[in-house]
Write a protein that binds this DNA or RNA. Structure first.
Lengths: 191, 191
DNA sequence: CGCCGAGTTGAACTGAATCAAGAAACGTGG
DNA sequence: CCACGTTTCTTGATTCAGTTCAACTCGGCG
């Protein structure tokens, strides 16, 4: 399991010892209870958080309803890339679904390291590409798959998520109503 | 309009003269007739192409049917990022919809420049983020918008596309049937 | 002239949303 | 540890959006 940002980054490319030391020196661990809001709509996202333990979700409001955009579980990094990148107010809320242990990195500090350590910027590029590809897969599934297929895929790729998150969040995540997801789940379980 | 890769990259960050020279020295212009295939499913994507003139589409087959994933018009860069990044066989075809003038850059050469010029790698990071954000917007529109709204948005953001591309391609791009798009278009035009 | 691909239109059908009501699970305070 | 209120989940009935299939129109082209 990924316990530090250095380790997280090094999954993509080795970093110099200096870079790693520098990253660790600006990391701070924090423990937060479930329901904590780590980013509020209207704020600018200024930190990224590596999840050591627990689960979070990012959501927005559409027509008064909460729509979950992303989940963040162990080994993943919580952030609103759009707000971080543009330095504009976030459209999203990020809330912890479970009690969490996180490692916080102030983005302003991380960004400085990008110019200091070329290899770190390189890792950041690869990370962005991976994010892009993931969104891409999701888009393809919207283009061609039914709700049932989208749910099956989620089950396959992320089997534990379903037990940790309530139905409504999963439903909006795959773009269907909670009622419909309940029926789909029934249908899939019945054999 | 963006006429060179240097100019394309410099929209994000200034590059050193050396880097620009180097980029230009590995760029080659090419003129190709409509219907040319610049990437075939099963090949590894080895080049990126800046579109100076014309239009291209990326598509794949789902259940025997063509599904268009992306369009590339003037000032944009044609590539299958997934295949380039993973160096695996592409799942996509990329075909020119119009006669095109392109600038080709062999990715293997470009990649070497990334390590040579830090600022170029930095630009590549920003580019990847922008791609990600774009896909993100698209995903949100699938989560919460009806087919009609998705089409209206496309019209608003890309008004000329509709006149340059046939209905079926646009329909699959926004994830609906061609028949349905025809009806939506009727409905929207009738006032 | 006849063909072909692209677009339109109609009819029947299906997947999914909505509304509403009830059941189950969950959390909190006493 | 129980009782209560709240949230989450299920289920049924109805409506609506979108698909599919098929027939037809239209414009361009060999």
């Amino acid at each position: 399991m990924t316990r530090t940002f250095s380790a997280y980054f090094e999954k993509y490319k080795p970093l110099s010892d200096k870079a790693k030391q520098n990253i660790e020196s600006i990391s701070t661990e924090l423990i937060l209870p479930k329901k904590s809001i780590v980013l509020r709509q209207g704020e600018v996202c200024r930190s990224v958080f590596l999840v050591l333990k627990g689960l979070a979700r990012m959501y927005y409001f559409d027509d008064g309803k909460e729509v979950t955009n992303l989940f963040f579980s162990e080994g993943e990094v919580i952030a609103d890339m759009e707000s971080i990148y543009s330095k504009k107010q976030s459209q999203y809320n990020i809330q912890l679904i479970e009690n969490c242990t996180l490692i916080e990195l102030k983005y302003s500090k991380l960004e400085k390291l990008y110019s200091l350590y070329h290899e770190l910027e390189s890792v950041a590029r690869l990370l962005a590409i991976e994010c892009y590809l993931e969104e891409n897969v999701r888009n393809r599934s919207y283009q061609t798959k039914s709700a049932k297929e989208r749910y099956s895929n989620l089950l396959k790729n992320n089997p534990d998520l379903i037990n940790r998150v309530n139905l409504g969040h999963v439903a909006s995540f795959i773009g269907i109503s909670q009622v419909q997801l309940s029926r789909i789940r029934l249908e899939l379980s019945s054999f």
